[in-house]
Design a protein around this nucleic acid. Structure first.
Length: 292
DNA sequence: CAAGCCTCCTGCTTGC
DNA sequence: TGCAAGCAGGAGGCTT
């Protein structure tokens, strides 16, 4: 499931293809993939055709490429199963192709296709609005549908103190707080379980019961696991997540908690457990992640 | 107003 | 063997 490291791998792959690229054609194969676009597919295409795109940005799991000279951007979210792939022009064979962009850029002619099995992801053209949160800050504009998303821990302007304070104000399980994109963005079910395992925290532990030092430690683990996953190209299961060239990342081999139920804890050897938690699965070690 | 549940969706896995 | 229920989960809307 694409979380921050996977989305960042996609952004890095799109950068040379999208930056300064002219949009020659837009083909919407499945309108459901535009559910976050305000107009219809004709409007979506009209706003992009003839436009020039700027370098792709990311906040949390949202990606966008500003349209040069306009106050709007092409926005993408991969949802559960979305992929943005770079293909040769006119290439066929993508089973769940939803949208195709035909581009002409400094690096050549490419199609960027949006492929999405489960249709939880989406593309849109959305207005850019000011999101500066520091005095004197300039050019901090994000799509309107991203305004409520918090900065992610790899953002240079992420405020560690505000995160620690915000986390400890929550009267919810600590995992719920980690998954709340308005507190910290980019964390999904996999990396939440990994960070909690590294911090030896039980997912249901009350966020407000964490000492500031523990909250800070948890944030450091989120950063570490993100950074390591990014280096390893992200986490891939069954080719569900891939980079823009269709290649799988190999961080799945480095997971310590997620999907490891029934196996020994890599730290203490106790059998890992999977437990239903808020409509998802939580994977943890019952010995070194005590609820207290 | 925060917290948590439900829904969107498809394909693979499980169970009868 | 075949079919259907179960399961996976990001995000936003809705309820409590």
């Amino acid at each position: 499931m694409p979380e921050l490291p996977e989305v960042e791998v996609v952004r890095l792959g799109l950068d040379p293809v999208l930056t300064d690229a002219f949009v020659r054609a837009v083909e919407v194969v499945d309108e459901r993939s535009l559910k976050r676009h305000e107009g219809d597919s004709a409007d979506f295409a009209a706003r992009l055709e003839g436009a020039v795109l700027e370098a792709p940005r990311r906040r949390g799991k949202f990606l966008w490429a500003p349209v040069a000279g306009r106050d709007e951007a092409l926005v993408g979210h991969l949802g559960m199963s979305g992929q943005l792939l770079v293909r040769d022009p006119g290439a066929a064979g993508d089973r769940h192709l939803r949208v195709r962009l035909t581009l002409e850029g400094p690096r050549g002619r490419y199609d960027v296709v949006f492929v999405d099995q489960r249709v939880f992801g989406s593309l849109a053209v959305d207005g850019l609005v000011d999101a500066s949160d520091a005095p004197g800050e300039r050019d901090e504009r994000v799509p309107s549908q991203v305004v409520h998303i918090a900065r992610d821990p790899l953002d240079a302007r992420f405020d560690d103190d505000a995160f620690v304070a915000g986390l400890r104000r929550r009267r919810s399980p600590v995992k719920s707080a980690l998954l709340d994109q308005t507190l910290v963005s980019g964390v999904g079910n996999i990396y939440a379980d990994e960070a909690l395992w590294r911090a030896r925290l039980h997912h249901a532990r009350g966020a407000d019961s964490l000492r500031p030092s523990k909250a800070r430690e948890l944030l450091a683990h989120v950063r570490d696991v993100f950074a390591q996953a990014l280096v390893e190209g992200g986490t891939s299961f069954d080719a569900q997540y891939v980079n823009v060239n269709g290649q799988a990342g190999y961080f799945a081999h480095s997971l310590n908690a997620y999907g490891r139920h029934g196996e020994p804890c890599p730290r203490c050897g106790a059998l890992m457990v999977r437990e239903a938690f808020q409509n998802r699965g939580s994977h943890f070690c019952p010995r070194c992640q005590r609820r207290r």
